[in-house]
């Protein structure tokens, strides 16, 4: 009944949504590298500009994207406070014992906050525009070279995709069992920690048994369909690169190059 919107995938069709998941993952890695390589506000500005372009292209509401930042607000504030007070700079505005506020400290903490916000926003853009299935497919495909060192890439991807499939089912089931026990007077909302932990037992045990039962039946159903691991197995769906991915690649490369050039020539380095 209840629809669990897993992760935060925002299901619309857009330029960014239709890009190959592998490229999006690589793009994210490049983008994060660029953010860390940036030593100046100019560098971050390049990243921010491109990110804004991506957000607009993705048709994900801007407000929704920035709401993501609220989740890390605490970390943002903590980092900036620590840096404002502890950063040793030359132009001192205020000081008391070992605490001081300096011009450099203020600038540096502003830099860090920008960096953090960029990191969180670009990562969430990946999950907003890529469904969990595409993500697993992408990761499996990117990890394929590891098969050479006998790393079980296929099995790992299968586990991930089965987990993704069963998480909503088990969440639904938890809700159902919880309701059934609530109907028998169980109380999950009040009492101290110990009482609350004990209250979970009547939910946990049926849930565990159900998960085992499901696993067993799924195992049988897979066996019955001749499953025997990744060897000899073929794959029906192949990920294909399109012109969108070529554009993405160029943009990603441009961002990294731009940031590296700024760094090498020390433009605006803090």
């Amino acid at each position: 009944m209840k629809d669990v919107s897993f992760g935060q995938y925002y299901p619309v069709s857009s330029f960014v949504h239709r890009m190959d998941p592998r490229l999006k993952i690589l793009f994210l890695i490049a983008f994060i590298t660029a953010i860390f390589l940036a030593t100046s506000f100019y560098g971050l500005a390049i990243c921010a500009g491109v990110l804004l372009l991506i957000i607009l292209l993705s048709r994900v509401p801007v407000g929704k994207v920035f709401r993501e930042i609220r989740g890390i607000l605490f970390i943002v504030i903590l980092t900036s406070v620590l840096n404002i007070f502890f950063y040793r700079g030359e132009t001192e505005y205020w000081s008391w014992k070992f605490l001081s506020i300096t011009r450099e400290g203020l600038i540096f903490s502003a830099f860090l906050v920008c960096r953090l916000i960029l990191l969180v926003t670009c990562s969430s853009m990946l999950t907003y525009t890529t469904s969990p299935v595409e993500l697993t497919d992408g990761i499996e495909s990117l990890l394929t070279p590891l098969k050479w060192i006998r790393f079980p890439v296929h099995e790992l991807a299968l586990i991930m995709s089965i987990a993704l499939r069963f998480i909503p089912i088990l969440m639904d089931e938890t809700e159902r069992i919880k309701n059934a026990q609530k109907a028998r007077g169980a109380d999950f909302e009040s009492g101290g920690l110990i009482k609350r932990i004990r209250a979970i037992v009547p939910v946990l045990i049926p849930l565990l048994l159900s998960a085992l039962r499901r696993a067993e039946e799924l195992g049988d159903a897979m066996d019955a369909r001749c499953y025997s691991g990744g060897r000899k197995r073929t794959k029906y769906k192949k990920l294909r690169l399109t012109w969108r991915d070529f554009v993405g690649f160029l943009v990603g490369a441009a961002v990294v190059t731009g940031v590296v050039l700024l760094r090498v020539y020390g433009v605006g380095t803090l």
């Binding site: 969990p132 299935v133 089912i169 499901r214 039946e217 049988d220 159903a221 897979m222 369909r225």
Partner: peptide, 14 residues
């Protein structure tokens, strides 16, 4: 081929 009881427990893919 065998088809089992619980419709939720037999699909592997999304």
């Amino acid at each position: 081929g065998v088809v089992f009881q619980n419709p939720d427990n037999q699909t592997v893919a999304t």
